[in-house]
């Protein structure tokens, strides 16, 4: 009698432990499986940002002073002599790459009237830390501006296990704000 009771209890407990284990494994594995990938192409991102308008394409040449400030923001050497952007009525869209841990993350940043309007991960190539791309997380960047020390004026929450990706997005967001300010300060004829 007692034996069968214990047996049932044990079986019940075992099945619950197995289920919990499987659930945890699935939850832990799912973000890793879905982390890598290209989520949107550059042209599609630009079209979506400015729809229904047709934005103008522009090029920002990285002269010595711009390059120096950009390198301060990123904390590394900046590759390329020019950066491409799209703009319409004081709104600019930038597609920039920054290394997360080992691989580059392609990030689209939209600046409207000197404030971040949206940030989107277009391609994520690391195997972990892809949680940064979730819209709820990206929404934190809305309205952020650049301080005098070229940092974001808003505090952005970190994500456990995605610290380097968060830093990369922060740096790119600050860089896009800086580039935007440079584009806006240029005479109309040179844009």
């Amino acid at each position: 009698m007692f034996n069968s009771l214990y047996k049932n209890l044990f079986n019940n407990l075992l099945s619950k432990v197995v289920f919990a284990g499987l659930l945890t494994t699935t939850l832990l594995a799912s973000p890793q499986l879905s982390a890598k990938g290209v989520y949107q192409s550059g042209p599609d991102f630009v079209a979506e940002v400015f729809a229904p308008q047709q934005p103008e394409a522009g090029v920002l040449w990285l002269n010595k002073s711009i390059r120096q400030e950009a390198e301060k923001i990123l904390g590394r050497k900046v590759l390329g002599l020019r950066v491409r952007y799209h703009q319409s009525a004081g709104k600019t869209a930038w597609i920039l790459n920054e290394i997360g841990k080992e691989m580059p993350i392609t990030i689209g940043v939209v600046i409207d009237q000197g404030k971040i309007s949206s940030v989107k991960i277009l391609a994520y190539r690391e195997s972990r830390g892809g949680e940064v791309r979730y819209p709820a997380y990206m929404a934190q960047y809305q309205g952020a501006t650049l301080t005098d020390r070229y940092k974001l004026d808003k505090s952005i929450d970190g994500i456990t296990g995605a610290t380097l990706s968060v830093w990369a997005v922060n740096k790119v967001a600050a860089l896009a704000l800086y580039y935007h300010s440079q584009v806006m300060s240029q005479p109309e004829s040179t844009k």
Partner: peptide, 16 residues
């Protein structure tokens, strides 16, 4: 690249 071998910019699959 420029004639001197400096990177001007890159055009990736993500860009088209």
């Amino acid at each position: 690249l420029t004639e001197n071998g400096q990177l001007l910019e890159s055009f990736s699959q993500l860009d088209g």
